[in-house]
Design a protein around this nucleic acid. Sequence first.
RNA 1: GGAGCAGUACUCAAGAGGCUGAAGAGGCUCCCCUGCUAAGGGAGUAGAUCGGGUUAAACUGGUGCGAGGGUUCAAAUCCCUCCUGCUCCGCCA
Length: 434
Amino acid sequence: MIDIKRIKADKEKIEKALSKRMGECSLDEIVRLDDEKLKLQQALEKLQQLRNINSKKIARLKSNNEDISDLVLETKSIGEKINSIANLLSTIKLELNDKLASLPNIPDDDLVSGGKENNQVLYQFLKKTQFDFLPKDHVELEKNLGLIDYDRGVKLAGQGSWIYTNEGARLEWALLNYCINEHIKDGWNFMLVPHMLNYECGYVAGQFPKFQEEVYWIDNFNDKNGKFLLPTAETALVNLHRNEILDESELPKKYFSYTPCYRREAGSSRKEERGIIRGHQFNKIEMVQFTLPEESDKAFEEMLTKAENLVKGLGLHYQLSKLAAGDCSASMCRTYDVEIWIPSMGIYKEISSVSNCRDYQARRGNIKYKNSITGKSNYINTLNGSGLATSRLLPAILEQFQQLDGSVIVPEVLRKYMGGLEVIESKKKKVLKK
RNA sequence: GGAGCAGUACUCAAGAGGCUGAAGAGGCUCCCCUGCUAAGGGAGUAGAUCGGGUUAAACUGGUGCGAGGGUUCAAAUCCCUCCUGCUCCGCCA
């Protein structure tokens, strides 16, 4: 949610900034609605004041046994006016709120406009893997090595579902453990959150109302108390302090969580998203940080570094991309993606998306902090970043670290989570090295 | 899932249609006394939010007693719906 005062103070500038991500954009209607809202509110409050005064007067007269009938009649008609204005006001407020809530966040000044095609690669770690043999793609490797059972996944849950089997499950689990332990080492707070959330969570995160059809609803979302399966742990973590006023001394607050992410992904199966690259349920560890406004840029760098270090630790080739305004999700002011090299496809796939949301979600969720000097409260800043999407890391590891004989070298940092396993080999000649 | 009870500020709590602009206690802040602990005395303490006002304050109006509606000139108080907690019953890894 963008601050309406900011919109009114700086309309053209904000319109221009928003047009970087959504094309032509006019805020005239929003400004008009807010003006009208203020006018009605002032009229309403005047009448309310009058009614309060009269009511007191009635109480006094009545205790003296004086006649109150005229005053009651007059006050009653004030009450009727109040009702009609209040109704009008609440309609306008709803309309204004709908319009404001559907605006995306203001992209940072340094972002280029346009969509994905304008993303800039900032950095590459290591080089593309060179093979002196014909490398296999991850689906083939997963099948040969018995790591993923696609057929039975489909049998159990339909298209877009799979089963991690044996060493595949262990590798995935090792990746999760690796990430979790690194975050704990960095002093972040580990949270295991509910996977079924209420509507408010999606709204605060900025995913609703726009994307409310892209999550799985346990109940109908028209039902006020309906719940949905979270599409990312961000949706839960960002809501941790909803409607709270935190003490400045508690900040920053750093949380991470592991959850599967449940997404409909309707109609999005393409060739380069075969297999485990995109599905209806994938594993991800998500970081969320709550900071003072003046510290969110620093926090952004911290989270980006953390995400990158996790990939570096695995020894994988990746690139860092700065997203163009139109490619950032609606709630975010800026987003950098960590993208992993998938040799068989010849492309880089996102495994972490680190974003600064500034006060957009905090406004939606009424998340504030109290300034220790002025005693005043102000909106907090929120940031989020994957650390990391393990379900995409696994295919990258298989493809980048595959050997001529079809085996795959296990990254060193993962071995301790896999009983010392160094190489994943085909079942028939599997050897456990020490 | 069913039944009963409850939800008031940082915490506990009084409150049963107008003198509540929410008593009282604890806590917290400040001051005094004693003196580095403990104890005692005094003062302050609705935070939040939306307006008006101001360079900023001061000042000022509205909202507010779990949430949302309703009744009434007037609601913490009466009525309805919902949410949450506790107790009991049912079900159950």
